[in-house]
């Protein structure tokens, strides 16, 4: 099998983990990353749920794996085209370079929902409306401040922005935003203990190990307020604070609340590359994610021979799930190549 090679598109957790495991099995791997640094969306995060693990540590662990001799890592390389040609997978980069391999692995990941599409929530219009990604960015600086440099007295988190929303066309749950809101509310309260944190939700989905415990902790130790109601619109006040309209559904009364910062928990959407490459290869599933052959037995397989899938290009996944899926894809590829060799009698 040592004469076999694999191209992996996407240098995020799934792509790196798959590359490393393939490389360990003497398969030469070419890994393409459109950005200058590997790590994908992990780059945007400061701490990780549910244990507040340092994202930069996880990222370093991942990037260290790229030092393997069998891995050729190409940063700043976007794949514009991926196709099956002369019994090979051919990836064509944005610099028109051709790379061929026996196997291609799609690990193109996700992008967060562009909150500007929900104009009524004020993102991109009012300064103090930010997204969960902006929050992480701010948290990395060690301070959560309004754009006027003020320490907020009140912060609100709104779940399901761009997920579970049929108006934007995303019916699905992004799975990570509820727990991220809990995590960020705690982080905020740790930084500004005297401030109030409100979390607006439709359903709190705490389906993961230690999630429920974290939710409980946020209530018990940090006094985070949970309000069951979806924010319909946000407006700005004279002093640049954000006025929110929602219904406190549990008391069946409409409510207005003025906060210093509104954090929109943006959902997971299929990335541009995922959409483009899976559409080109006719493996696009609902909402523009890549479609696996079968959810149970062949989740890393696509309908295309020799084209494998790993990570969030398939659906919203948490980071541990994504890394595990990269590993799983590596095993599937190894098994597939072995079978291929046996068929050819090598």
């Amino acid at each position: 099998m040592n004469n076999k090679n694999v191209i992996i598109i996407g240098g995020g957790p799934a792509g790196i983990e798959a590359a490393f495991n393939l490389a360990n099995n003497d398969i030469s791997v070419t890994l393409f990353e459109k950005e200058s640094q590997p790590g994908g969306n992990v780059k945007n995060w400061a701490k990780l749920f549910p244990d507040f693990g340092d994202a930069s540590v996880v990222r370093k662990e991942l990037t260290d794996k790229l030092k393997h001799n069998n891995i050729k890592f190409l940063a700043n390389t976007k794949i514009d085209n991926l196709k099956w040609e002369n019994n090979n997978w051919v990836a064509i980069t944005d610099k028109d370079e051709k790379h061929t391999a026996d196997i291609a692995l799609l690990a193109t990941g996700f992008e967060v929902f562009d909150a500007r599409r929900k104009e009524e929530l004020g993102y991109g219009i009012y300064d103090n409306v930010i997204t969960s990604v902006d929050f992480e960015e701010m948290y990395k600086t060690g301070k959560i401040l309004t754009t006027e440099g003020k320490i907020p007295e009140r912060i609100a988190f709104l779940n399901c922005v761009g997920s579970r929303d049929e108006k934007v066309g995303n019916h699905y749950c992004s799975r990570v935003c509820c727990i991220t809101a809990v995590k960020q509310a705690i982080e905020f309260k740790e930084l500004v203990p005297q401030a109030q944190a409100y979390c607006f939700y439709m359903d709190m989905r705490m389906a993961g190990q230690f999630y429920e415990e974290l939710y409980r902790k946020s209530q018990e130790e940090f006094g985070v307020n949970y309000i069951r109601g979806r924010i319909s619109e946000a407006a700005v006040t004279m002093d640049k604070r954000i006025q929110i309209k929602a219904e406190d559904t549990l008391s069946a009364l409409p409510m207005k609340i003025t906060v210093d910062i509104l954090v929109l928990m943006v959902g997971i959407e299929s990335s541009e590359s995922t959409l483009k490459l899976s559409t080109d290869n006719n493996i696009v599933g609902p909402y523009g994610f890549a479609k696996s052959k079968s959810l149970f037995g062949k989740d890393n397989y696509s309908e295309k021979k020799g084209l494998f899938l790993a990570g969030t290009c398939k659906r919203p996944l948490t980071l541990p799930e994504t890394i595990a899926d990269g590993r799983s894809a590596a095993i599937e590829i190894i098994n597939y190549l072995r079978l291929l060799d046996e068929e050819l009698g090598i």
Binding site: A246, E247, D248, T249, P254
Partner: peptide
């Protein structure tokens, strides 16, 4: 799913106690 966004945005509920949800 009774999220209350309708009741929150309601033009009438700006004036009077009315809750569509």
């Amino acid at each position: 799913l009774m999220c209350g966004a309708c009741a929150a945005t309601c033009s009438a509920s700006n004036h009077i106690d009315f809750n569509f949800r």
